[in-house]
């Protein structure tokens, strides 16, 4: 799509794009170039000079058990966050769509956690599940279940998933509700006249018509779980115990800033860069399709 009408000016357009280009070059292309460059070097033990190793950092990375485990951890974490955040949100959206009176009040009460920072979400859930003082940890202990996510990797994973999903529900809810309200009423009424029950109507008519929204949210939630949950992990578990919650983004940070292993961290950045690239392409394909609907 192009504009038919344009202005004619020799220098103005360059002046207009200059600020954004400048910022993009200094804080995007320069660092990204650095990452790619550094991923091909390892520093000597004294940090005095670096040695070119080509793909050596990548070979080392994928040969590293912890890195491969981190991949698996990320996959498990993202799938759990995506499924729980989406299914709970869809359930709430279906209910809210059924309500005539007070639906805007419900919406208001359901959307605000979007505004809570992931790090704050981490703090809130950490507080509830604190093994010694947390209210939910205490309730669980009353039921005979010992909660200590500082020791149990499975519990740690459950906790970061819950905190991450909790924050994302509002977002999914908004999009599902908008999707549901965009479905023409006549289609559902026709199904009702055909004698389909509520749940049958939902699974045979509503859910398929909602599929563009669902696909879109799927991609957005995976991207969220991959990259935006750093704050949750960092406040609750710092990747532990025993790396059981070290997702890829956390590992880049941990190796680069805590471990000071710049070559490996840079190689990891490049791997993530490729991953984000793929996800973005997928996202755009879906969005493009959405536009044509």
């Amino acid at each position: 799509m192009e504009k038919r009408v344009v202005f004619d000016n020799r220098w103005l357009p360059y002046l207009l794009v200059a600020p954004q280009l400048l910022v993009t070059f200094v804080f995007f292309f320069w660092p990204a170039g650095q990452a790619i460059y550094q991923s091909a070097f390892i520093p000597d033990p004294f940090g005095l000079k670096t040695q070119f190793v080509g793909f050596g950092n990548f070979e080392y990375l994928f040969g590293n058990r912890y890195y491969r485990e981190s991949f698996l951890t990320t996959a498990v974490f993202s799938v759990l966050v995506t499924i729980s955040a989406m299914s709970f949100a869809l359930w709430l959206a279906v209910l809210a769509d059924r309500v005539i009176k007070g639906s805007s009040a419900y919406r208001t009460l359901l959307i605000w956690p979007y505004a809570v920072a992931p790090a704050i979400a981490g703090v809130l859930w950490l507080f509830m599940f604190n093994p010694f003082t947390g209210i939910i940890a205490w309730m669980l202990s009353q039921m005979g279940y010992v909660w200590n996510h500082n020791l149990d990797g499975g519990q740690a994973m459950a906790l970061v998933v819950a905190a991450s999903a909790w924050k994302q529900i509002s977002y999914n809810f908004l999009f599902f509700l908008a999707g549901l309200q965009a479905i023409p009423k006549s289609v559902i009424e026709a199904a009702a006249i055909d004698g389909a029950s509520f749940w049958r109507r939902f699974w045979t008519i509503v859910f398929p018509l909602l599929s563009p929204t669902t696909f879109f949210l799927l991609v957005v939630n995976i991207i969220y779980a991959f990259f935006d949950t750093f704050g949750v992990i960092h406040t609750i578990t710092q990747g532990g115990p025993q790396q059981s919650t070290t997702i890829l983004v956390y590992k880049v940070f941990a190796d680069g800033f805590v471990g000071q292993d710049l070559g490996s961290s840079a190689a990891q950045s490049v791997v993530l860069l490729v991953l984000v690239g793929i996800l973005t392409v997928v996202q755009f394909r879906f969005i493009e399709r959405r536009v044509h609907y």
């Binding site: 995007f28 660092p31 990204a32 680069g256 800033f257 950045s269 860069l273 973005t280």
Partner: peptide, 24 residues
């Protein structure tokens, strides 16, 4: 220019964190 700007869509700051830190 459009594509140069557009490519930044793909990279949240978390991904390029170490080199960006160094630049800053």
């Amino acid at each position: 220019f459009f594509w140069l700007i557009f490519m930044t869509l793909m990279l949240p700051v978390e991904v390029r964190i170490v080199p960006t830190y160094e630049v800053v």
